[in-house]
Design a protein around this nucleic acid. Structure first.
Length: 367
DNA sequence: TATCCGTGGTG
DNA sequence: TCACCAAGGAT
């Protein structure tokens, strides 16, 4: 998309945006300096996550892993523990992998170009542009949801921002507008604008510093932009959650390294949709015994009919029916599993859904 | 390219 | 209850 603005108009646009930013920019922990490690950490945490949620995680994580070298050397389970509750857990694993790449491939000094940053694990076009512009003053766009919304409104762009190929339309446009003297501030100003006057819900475009440049505002069509196709509803997946207790504690298993809640610890789950008609208690016992390699160990089930715990993810809604069992301790050597005392749960990285299950058990008097 | 991957806030 | 959103990336 070619921009037919004069040089004077482009200069006025940049000045209006940056003057406003200089006056009104938010005071955020990762804006204290331009350390690329700080920028990488904050940008990774901020992916699909709100600022208010990230701030305490960011401060704690930096306290725990102060440098890129410290993160590269850290045990992975400690990194996961620091990420616990933040969601999208593969971000944590990729972040540590990127730290290792910086140490091993670049001697501990981040590369300066977006193209090189893009090669690091977990860094996509947005994060590469953010680090390159904020930490290294490179004139690279950082196109996040805010930038999509702000520029879609400014220029009444009809392309669907849910489609990957739409990014290039915005990229081309922003490269013509970004301030070559202050690219990092330009990108961050757009984000601040997108989270304030140009927010998604109930925007206040009249008071935006870019109101005079905003084609959607000038035509009273702000709420028509950005154009974004809708997501599908999450599918319902029913599980039995096995609460197996022995003298050594509760049985927890580590989730597979890929997929949902990767690497985190939970009660064993049995996918009821794969069990077909095996919904009777005796069949359930058989399935549980099979799963946990419990042959010969007697189980006593209780409260199998209790109300399920619900937890909704982006693409799935889990309905978890708690099934409690008392067991002798048995050898777990071959499983990614261990017996854990309830008081020691907090030492492991647990997903929120597991914490919900624990809370339900405590409310029911068990555990 | 379409789908997968969490969580908490909001109206 | 529900739909949508919030500083996206990997596959």
């Amino acid at each position: 998309m070619a921009l037919n603005w004069s040089e004077e108009k482009i200069a006025a646009f940049r000045k209006a945006l940056l003057d406003w930013y200089d006056q009104e920019k938010r005071d955020l922990p990762w804006r204290r300096d331009h350390d690329p490690y700080h920028i990488l950490l904050s940008e990774t945490m901020l992916q699909q996550t709100q600022v208010a949620t990230v701030i305490p995680y960011y401060n704690h994580f930096l306290q725990r892993f102060p440098t890129v070298a410290a993160l590269a050397q850290a045990p992975e389970d400690q990194v996961m523990k620091a990420w616990e509750g933040l969601g999208y857990y593969s971000r944590a694993r990729h972040l540590q992998q990127a730290a290792k790449q910086v140490v091993q491939d670049y001697g501990g000094e981040f590369p300066h170009t977006a193209a090189e940053l893009r090669q690091l694990s977990g860094i996509g076009p947005y994060t590469a542009g953010a680090i390159a512009s904020i930490a290294f003053n490179q004139p690279e766009p950082a196109i996040d949801g805010n930038a999509f919304r702000v520029f879609a409104r400014l220029f009444k762009i009809d392309a669907d921002i849910a489609k990957p190929q739409t990014r290039q339309v915005f990229d081309q446009l922003i490269r013509q507008l970004i301030d070559p003297q202050r690219p990092g501030d330009f990108n961050q100003a757009i984000m601040d604008l997108g989270s304030s006057y140009m927010r998604a819900k109930d925007p206040d475009p009249a008071h935006s510093p870019l109101a005079a440049f905003d084609q959607s505002y000038l035509s009273d069509t702000v709420l028509d932009y950005p154009v974004k196709s809708k997501k599908k509803k999450p599918v319902v997946v029913p599980y039995f959650a096995l609460v197996i207790h022995s003298p050594q504690g509760y049985l927890l298993v580590q989730r597979p390294r890929t997929g949902m809640l990767a690497d985190l610890w939970m009660f064993p789950l049995i996918d009821r949709s794969e069990l077909e008609a095996a919904l009777e208690v005796d069949q359930l016992i058989e399935a549980a015994a099979q799963f946990a390699a419990l042959s010969g160990v007697a189980l006593k089930f209780a409260d199998a009919g209790a109300k399920p715990v619900r937890h909704t993810f982006t693409h799935q809604q889990w309905q978890l029916t708690l099934v409690e069992a008392e067991s002798a301790a048995f050898d777990l050597a071959v499983l990614p599993a261990k017996w854990v005392k309830a008081a020691d749960f907090e030492k492991l990285a647990l997903p929120t859904v597991q914490k919900k299950l624990v809370a339900a058990l405590k409310a029911g008097g068990a555990l």
